[in-house]
Design a protein around this nucleic acid. Structure first.
Lengths: 195, 195
DNA sequence: AGTTTCAGATGACGCTGTCATCTCTTGAGT
DNA sequence: ACTCAAGAGATGACAGCGTCATCTGAAACT
């Protein structure tokens, strides 16, 4: 039926799922190894067979999220009938939407753990490379890097501010994350037209 | 000599200082109530006389940091001989510098605790209001809100990406936080000139 | 002087991450 | 077919954490 390696892999997956679900529903505090184990149908010690650490488990959750986003970016880039600006907008909103609907996961994706500062950054590579390519279609190879970095930074900041509820402050006049994204993309598109 | 109220206030200040120092030097994990108490010269139970919670203590630390930044923004705004664009740049870099040199404090300033989602946002009010006024000097009252929100969001994102070491990725071609800030400010300044 | 008040100390509790150890099933080697 | 190493998972134990109830002693007030 199920070989040993298969069932071990299934447990590993179940642990990741359990951790991700607990993170979504109850925040980081809800992700205890005991709760993760219970939800995955094992006990508190079992995760140590699959992950070095609690931190390693969380990094794995974040990595999986980046991979999923990478798939989305890749699909978006290959989508026919979309302008470069529309693809950029779509990609940024996809990122921002994670911040909206899975704020705890979002924080995790951008939190560099002290242990290995590059682990999550490496996982983010593909998403960002795909995005970079689309930006190059809009502004050209030369300026692509600078503008892509700016766009991703801004989207990250917009999502962060929205997540902390600060964007809803009346001081900003009811501006939405989409408004800000569009403003930025329009400015960059305009700039590139004049250059 | 020291009245009761005075010594209590001094203890409160010592607790805040201790928490901030521990946060800077060892990250959030290093901020245990026991360590905070020890560094402030009291024991683990004492903080509960001054703060409801460990979370409340951390919020107080973040609030104090926002107040300090607010002072800086206010001084910067009043500075003569600086153009609006230069003031904006200075304000953004001041924020980004906190992310650079006190990354853990920075994270705290932008983390909305589940308890009271608006506590830190309220503390951030003055800084942001000062900043909003300077932006209005550059782009006019009408667009100030949108652009100020975009600028703060972007600075926040830039600081976040830099803090997680992702900006140093060669993929971005060695762009710096200052480069990104300048690019954005220039775009907005240019836009407002054409409008 | 007597009494209230309150900052701080102390002991205890449950929960957490982590590790050493044990059990038992699986799968390969003979 | 029998043996046996390997490894997934269970279990017990430990230190450290936040938190609370309780105690102590000195300052402030009547």
């Amino acid at each position: 039926m199920t070989s040993r390696a298969e069932s071990a892999a299934a447990t590993r997956r179940a642990l990741l799922d359990a951790a991700a679900e607990l993170l979504d529903s109850g925040g980081l505090d809800a992700v205890t190894l005991r709760a993760v184990g219970a939800r995955a149908g094992v006990t508190r010690g079992a995760p140590y067979r699959h992950f070095l650490d609690k931190e390693s488990l969380l990094i794995a959750v974040g990595t999986r999220a980046w991979d999923t986003l990478g798939d989305r970016m890749q699909a978006l880039r290959a989508e026919p009938g979309l302008s470069a600006a529309e693809k950029i907008r779509g990609g940024l909103i996809a990122l921002i939407d994670i911040g909206r609907f899975q704020p705890h996961l979002y924080k995790l994706m951008f939190s560099n753990p002290p242990g290995d500062p590059t682990a999550l950054a490496r996982a983010a590579q593909r998403s960002q490379t795909e995005f970079l390519a689309v930006v190059a279609d809009l502004v050209g190879e030369q300026d692509a890097r600078r503008y892509a970095a700016l766009l991703i930074s801004s989207a990250n900041g917009i999502a962060g501010l929205e997540a902390s509820g600060q964007l809803t402050d009346p001081k900003w006049g009811g501006v939405s994350a989409e408004d800000l994204t569009d403003t930025l993309v329009d400015m960059i598109a305009g700039k590139s037209r004049h250059a």
